[in-house]
Structure formats: C-alpha cells, structure tokens
Design a protein around this nucleic acid. Structure first.
Lengths: 347, 347
DNA sequence: TTGATTTATTGGAACGTTCCATTTATAGCG
DNA sequence: CGCTATAAATGGAACGTTCCAATAAATCAA
C-alpha cells in the first residue's frame, strides 16, 4: 500500500500510460487534455497515493500560493480574531495562510520571517513584535515580497498599514468619561516603544486639552499590556495623593486587569471607578460588569488586510495605501458617572 | 539595490570567487571549509541579498524542517495556549511550526492538510475538526508522514493521541459537586460526535452512579461548546420541572456562558447554582465569580505533543504511545454548596 | 625525494516540477 | 485524396539545491 519511495508525476505517467507533461497539464486543470485522458490520469493519481510537490513546482513557477501571517501574540484573543478575518478572504481566494507566532520577541520574529521567506511565501502580513528594529524588514522588501502591517506600524517605514483610527478612538473614549463628570483621569498600560501607544495616548491628551482637563489632573501609568499590567496600573493610580476616578486603558486586557484589581479592593467598576477599554474583544460584552470599550472591527480589519495583500500580489507591487479603519465607542456598564460630580450624559 | 532576478548560490559563488558546492557547504555550516573562505562567502551572501530556497533544497534532502499544526478553533484561548506550549519546544529544536486554523470545518481541514502536505512538512500535529471522517488521514499515513492528535481523537484510528484524562477529570468534578450536597446534577454542552464528549460525560455518569445519584436526578443538555451554547443549556435546564442545582460543563466556554445566563436572571453562580468548568483556561481564575474548573495543563500537553512528534520524526516511525495527562480540580468560587442541603466539604 | 595521508575545493548528476517547441492524431474542406 | 487547421500529447531543458566522487593543495613519513 505505502509505496516505498514517494510517487512522482512520472509514476503516474507510467501508471496511466501517458507522458509526464500530460500529467502536469491535468494537475493544472488545463483544458487542453481530452476529458477521458484526464479521468484516466486522475485515477492513477489516486491509485499511487501521489502528493504534489509544491517545492519542485515553485522552482519553475516562482509563484507560490502561500501567505505568511506573523502575529505577535496569539494568546490575545484580539489577534486570533484578526487572523480569523484574514482567513475568510484567503480561503475564498484559494490561498493558504500559514500563521506563525512571535510571542512579542524580535529574535523569534527574525527566525520566523526567515523561515517563511525560505519557504517562498507570496506575501507577508505582519503585526510586528515590540522592539522590532527599523531594518528588520529591509531584506524582505529588497527581495520584492509584499508586506502589509496589521494593527501596528513601525516608526518610519513605507510599508502599508492596516489599523484602526487609534487617535479618534481614544478621543471618543476620553470625551465620554469627561462628559460623565470625571475630572481626574488616568491612562493605563502600554509603553512608549509602540507607535500605537502614542496614537492612543495622544487622542486621550487631546480630548483632555479640548475639554479643559489640566495636566495636573491627568495621570499616565505605563505598564504591560496584559491583565497583570492592568492590575499594577490601578494599584499605582490609587496610591497617589489625589487618585483619578476614571481610566482609559491601552487595551481590553489592561482594562480587565484594572477591573479585577478593583474587585480585589471591594470596589466596583462603573460605580466606584470608571474603566474604558480598547479593541472591544468578544469578552468585553460578557464581562461583569460589561466593559465599555472602543470597537475597532477586528475581523473587518483582518479582511481588509488580506484584500490589500491579494491586490499587491496580483499587481506585483510592493506599495499600497494605508487603511485606517473607523472606530466607535460601545458604552456598557463599566463607565459610570463620577459619583461626586454628576453631570448628565446618562445614557 | 534590489537585484532583478533573485540571487542563487551561483551568484554568491561568482561574487565570492568559489564554486557553488563551497557555498552550499558554508550554508550548511560544514566544518570542511576553511574559516577565511567561509567569511568571504558569508559576506557575499550578505552583499547580494540572498534568500535560501528551501524548496529546491528539499528536492534533494527530502527532510524538511517545518511541522504543521492544524487547530480546530484558534479563537478558543485553550488552543492558543496549546499552540504556545508546542512552539516552545519546537523553537528549541530549530523547527518552525506553521499553524493553520480549520474553524471546526472538515472541508477546510482537508484543504489545509493537503496544502501542508504539498509543502512537504516533516510532521503534523492535529486537533481534528468536529465531524472529521475516519479516512481523512489515510492518505497522510500511507505517505509516511507522522501525525499526532492533540486533545481530540478519532473513533478508531491508530494515530497516537496526547490528551488529558477526561474521564478522571469529570469524575473529580462530579464528586466535588455531590460532596457539596448537590443532588440534582446536570451536564452542559458538547455533542456526541466528539469522543471527548463521551469521555467527560462518562466520568460524570460514573461518579453519579458511585455516589448514588439516580438517573432521574441527572440532566444532560447537549449544546454548542461556546458561551452561547452554555447560556442556552442553562435556560433549558432551569425550564425543567425539577431543575438541577449544579452543572458540570463540557468546557470553560460553556461554563462562562452558563454563568452569564445566571447573572442575567439575577442569580449568582456559586450561591444559587454551582458551575464547574473544564480545561481551566487562564480566564477562569479571573472571572467573577472565579470559576471552579478541571485543570489539564494545556501548555504541558502541547510540549508533550511536540516532543512525541520530534521523536517520531527522528526515529522515522509513524507509531507512538498515547499520552494521557494528569488532571486536577481547581476549586474556586463558582461551585458553592447546595443551599438547601448543606453537607460539609466546605473548603 | 616519493608516496601516502589529510585538508579544501569542485564539477556534475540528481531531485520533481513547468513550459516551450515539437510531434502526432483528428477533423474539415475542396 | 492531399492539404491545412485544430486538438491532444510529448520530449527536453530549465529551476536552485545537495552530495558523491574526484581533484588539487598541503602535510607528513620514511
């Protein structure tokens, strides 16, 4: 049953009594071969348990059908949702995306990119790891392989980016908190080596300026972008002389962490301290209390990124427009009014 | 800068003034070449922006360094944790795992497996999609590519399986509930087309038998293995004439759903209805109330699966022992005693 | 010195495909 | 019937590696 050596198109050719070229044509679904011949060949393929060798084919074709998705943290459901969005459109296009995880480690990322390139990918969709060096993608660019960044960007690179409107999202969220009467605001989590951090923090600060929250009433606490980081941020904030009454969090994981820390202190998010997240992962709606968050249409961004990639491959270009996705604030329970300073905007 | 056609070892050879064989040797880190020659070659490699063509190499070597991980639901954090465990050991072994998602769709799974095979993977770690047909892996087996199943198994296949002790986990959980005084128990979620379902349900039923819960006091509600499914299960259960007071859930997602449905009814998990989950995902500990769950050491199972795979590849076999991982019950807040039937075991 | 041994390097034949240029078979037409 | 036009099938030269067998250069033993 299991043939000793693996079968090649020559074995099929012999089995079916045709030439290897004919087999190749059948494999490619060419209309040039007589239907009955095709049937005969396909039967032979089945009989010998043939598996197509794409490596050999690519040697001639130089056009593979695999796309690499390099993701910095698979355990963050946010990125899993992104991946799912991309897969939907790739599947429809007959392209197989291979996902690789870098675990937020630039060295690992280097290895993963190298391996993907050696495999001959047609394109790369990357959410770069924190601390990626500016030149990390130069090799790939000069090799002419299209890249698009998803969600994150690098300080000054000309690689197209698909990302939500972080600035606007943060403005919306901060305005919401201020309208609810909060006057002492914090920004929790994230660190300044991420471009996204500056965008979100920038929106937060802009809203504060516009609506008259002085710098002395703003608290910025950097921290890990995880539950743990969020817990730490909250502790730090409450330990200050005049603690804030509300916080915009870098992302939902940080927000969940902050809410957990509140609960540990017997405080309730929403009633005692307002928390707003960013990304609106599926879990936000199901949390208790439900988390107010900036929705970024994650799967939609994934689809968009995939489309852009497909177009780049098709038109053999390495350039494309950036795409900034619309955002919206989803108000839930976690962002109640300041109890000492009630001012309308009660939704 | 970007050379027109992509560079090959011949270009490097010319650049460095050596033969292609020498370049090949350098690429493989052979000790046969003179150090200064190696340096010269490596410089040339850098200069021409060479990228190794693994497809061409595999044509001769027939031993690739990529392993495919086929996962049925990436958005379930449980599988992401599994993937992370595997990656740890593969990275150390210099192997690059490519992850592909089947979204619980056997057709998609077929495509993904085909593509991975064509890519010439050295092995496959698979968590099969629900509804996978028995013969789905025959082709791969006869091709001699090692497979290991992770977490899930197929009804009667001789492919090695790495999975937790589902039966024992369910026994532990059910015993716990019964000792807490519950007398009307339910099993929530999952469906009988999954082998895992029978294992977990079997453990539940066995514990009921042993500890004297009659069949009339047991309720089994099948359902989707998601939050949504869990919510539906709870509603169904509470609508019965004599509703249960506790439920063991097929997995944590179902448990989270059940808890959410309780909250919607202004009931509290733990106090009004006991809920136990399965898998103990990271979130379980941080939920409110914290979820009692069967811990399966997900990342550990991932590591084990990767090790088994590595060994199979090395020893060129397609056989290996099953590995059933130890489980333990982590008691938290969601599984309080039956309020009408208090009987010790208060931890 | 000569031959044997070791150390570095090299040419060439694979590997399994694709695709161009041909060849062969089939049909159409006057 | 011969001729052309069309359809179907084919051989062979790539593609970029690896690896064996062979060569060339350097070292050693006697």
């Amino acid at each position: 049953m299991a043939s000793r050596a693996k079968a090649t198109i020559l074995d099929i050719a012999r089995e079916a009594g045709v030439s290897k070229s004919t087999v190749s044509l059948v494999l490619q679904g060419s209309g040039l071969i007589r239907p009955e011949t095709a049937v005969k060949v396909r039967k032979a393929i089945e009989d010998v348990g043939y598996v197509y060798n794409r490596g050999a084919a690519n040697l001639r074709k130089a056009h593979s059908n695999v796309i690499g998705m390099v993701i910095n943290d698979l355990t963050n459901p946010f990125f899993a949702e992104l991946a799912v969005g991309m897969e939907r459109v790739f599947q429809a296009a007959g392209v197989v995306p291979f996902i690789a995880n870098t675990a937020e480690n630039p060295v690992r990322q280097e290895e993963v990119l190298k391996s993907l390139m050696e495999q001959g990918v047609a394109g790369l969709i990357v959410s770069p790891a924190r601390g990626t060096t500016p030149g990390a993608f130069r090799r790939i660019e000069t090799a002419g392989v299209p890249i698009v960044f998803a969600m994150r960007r690098l300080p000054d690179s000309r690689i197209p980016v698909i990302a939500p409107d972080n600035h606007r999202g943060a403005v919306l969220a901060a305005e919401h908190l201020i309208r609810r009467g909060h006057r002492r605001l914090a920004f929790f989590g994230g660190s300044s080596d991420l471009v996204v951090y500056h965008e979100r923090l920038g929106g937060f600060l802009e809203a504060c300026e516009t609506l008259g929250i002085p710098a002395s009433d703003r608290l910025i606490v950097e921290g890990e972008t995880s539950r743990k980081g969020g817990m730490a941020c909250l502790e730090t904030a409450l330990a200050t002389a005049e603690p804030p009454t509300a916080a915009l969090c870098f992302n939902d994981a940080v927000a969940f962490g902050a809410m957990l820390a509140l609960r540990r202190r017997k405080l309730e998010a929403g009633a005692d301290f307002a928390v707003v997240g960013f990304d609106d992962v599926a879990e936000a709606e199901h949390y208790s209390p439900a988390l107010t968050s900036v929705a970024v249409d994650t799967a939609g961004l994934g689809e968009r990124a995939a489309h852009v990639m497909l177009k780049m491959i098709q038109s053999r270009t390495t350039r494309a427009e950036d795409h900034i996705g619309a955002v919206s604030l989803v108000v839930r329970e976690s962002s109640g009014p300041d109890r000492n300073n009630q001012v309308g905007d009660a939704a």
